[in-house]
Structures are given as C-alpha cells and as structure tokens.
C-alpha cells in the first residue's frame, strides 16, 4: 500500500520507490511518485498515455535516472554511489512494449547473452538455464529461430524468458501486450498469469483492464505524474474513491 515515508521497510517491501521525481527538459513527468511492492505481488500501473507509467518503471531500474527520491530493492539503496547498478539490474527483469529482442541473435542467443556476459556462466550452463526458461514460456522448439521469424506474441514470450533466466527478484513490464495483435495477447497474458501463480513479483504498466481485475493484487492509477489512487484490484474496480479513477476505468473498459 501507499504509506508515508519511513514506515516502509518495517513492512517488508521488496521494491520501494518513494517520492520519485523526474523532469525532461521543461516537463515534470514524475511529481513525487510512491510505489511500493511486496514480494509475490502483482501490481498494475494504469493511467492515460503520458501519465508517467513508463518513466516510473524505467526509474525503478535506473534506465532513467530519477532527479530525486528514494529507491530500494530488498533493502539495498539503488541510488547509492556504492551500489553496483549493473548487479542490481540483473535482479530486476524488464519486459518491453516492442519486445526489443536482439535481431542478430537467435532466441537462444537472446536469452543466454546476459547469462554469459553478466553472470559469467559457461556456455553449457547458460544454454541449459535458457532452455529451462524457454520451456516455461513454451518457446523451446523455437530456440534456433531469429526474432524476425517470430510473431509479436512469440517474441514477447522470448522477451519474458530473457528476463526470467536471470532469476530476478521482480519483473517490470512496460505495456507488454499493447503492440500485439488481439489474438496474440491471450498467450502472453497466460504466461504472465503462470508467473504470478509461481509467486513472481511483477509491476505491469498496461491497459488490459480485464486482466488487471482478475490477476492483479493491487492497482495504482497514475495521472499527470502523480498517483491519483491506489488500492486492491477489487477495491479499485468496484469502489474507487476518486471520481477521476472511476471515469478512467469506465472509459478504459471499452
């Protein structure tokens, strides 16, 4: 839940982003956003385009550098100078709207690259780990294919396997299904659902309201770089406190 600064650690949050601010040029995209995620939770970030969802996710692993705020993963201060951000990023998976698979590498190569480069695994170990994770997303038989030979839905499942293989503590997903043809969305949502059932912690920015309602533990509604309202999925969809939240959900459902 959203709690005042200071009481967070005591409640055992896995990810704590507090009072995150980010400005691009003249535009303040994040105006002091709090996001706290417990282990095993699936948190949905919803809100209109330009509300700061993507930027907030990117601030969580410092792909964008927050201008100010507090950022902790499992108690480690991600903004501290002494923190090796590359080692921490390994523990924070990220899945992208446009998949961002490496076009010059096979599916297997996409998944093994960081295992070899960051975790310094041997080729054999990396490939075994990669195949295990491709199995989880149902992509083992495509291990030798190149991304361009795969549909968007299959590419996204590879993207999920790529971040899963690093055995992250949580995965950030930035609109994982919004670039997909409607009939491909389901298979990706099924993979996300399976991850949730295995206890993976996830923060997902998405417009899939039906999925949010059935799968999310918590929903955070962001608009204009601020959290308007946050609560359990049930509470947000049936008894949102703010008129703006109710209005957004009414429109988003169609």
């Amino acid at each position: 839940m959203l709690t005042p600064t200071g009481t967070a650690t005591a409640q055992g949050f896995l990810l704590e982003a507090l009072q995150i601010r980010k400005t691009f040029g003249q535009t303040e995209v994040l105006k002091g956003v709090d996001l706290q995620v417990k282990a095993g939770e699936l948190v949905f970030l919803i809100g209109p385009s330009g509300s700061g969802k993507s930027t907030l996710l990117r601030c969580c692993n410092r792909l964008e550098e927050p201008d100010s705020g507090t950022l902790r993963l499992d108690g480690t201060d991600l903004l501290a100078k002494a923190t090796d951000i590359n080692q921490m990023r390994r523990k924070i998976g990220m899945v992208f709207q446009s998949f961002n698979l490496y076009p010059h590498l096979t599916v297997l190569g996409n998944v093994t690259l960081a295992l070899r480069q960051v975790m310094k695994m041997t080729r054999a170990d990396a490939e075994a780990r990669a195949l295990e994770n491709l199995e989880l997303v149902g992509m083992v038989e495509k291990a030798a294919a190149y991304p361009a030979q795969l549909s968007g839905g299959l590419q996204q499942r590879v993207g999920i396997a790529r971040s899963l293989a690093l055995q992250p503590m949580l995965i950030l997903m930035d609109e994982p299904t919004s670039a997909l043809d409607p009939e491909l969305v389901e298979s990706v949502l099924a993979v996300i659902k399976a991850l949730r059932d295995r206890g993976m912690t996830m923060v997902i920015a998405s417009h899939e309201m039906n999925f949010a309602r059935q799968a999310a533990d918590r929903v955070v509604f962001l608009e204009g770089g601020q959290v308007v309202e946050a609560g359990s999925a049930e509470q947000m969809f049936t008894a949102a406190q703010h008129e703006r939240t109710r209005q957004f959900l009414r429109q988003a459902r169609h």
Partner: peptide
C-alpha cells in the same frame, strides 16, 4: 533503436 540499449542495460550488461 534505443530499445536495444535499454534491453541490454536492463539485464545488467555494462
């Protein structure tokens, strides 16, 4: 595309 940089950096690559 910048997404290639983001994807790789997000896995902890330098």
């Amino acid at each position: 595309p910048p997404g290639q940089w983001m994807a790789a950096r997000s896995t902890g690559m330098t």
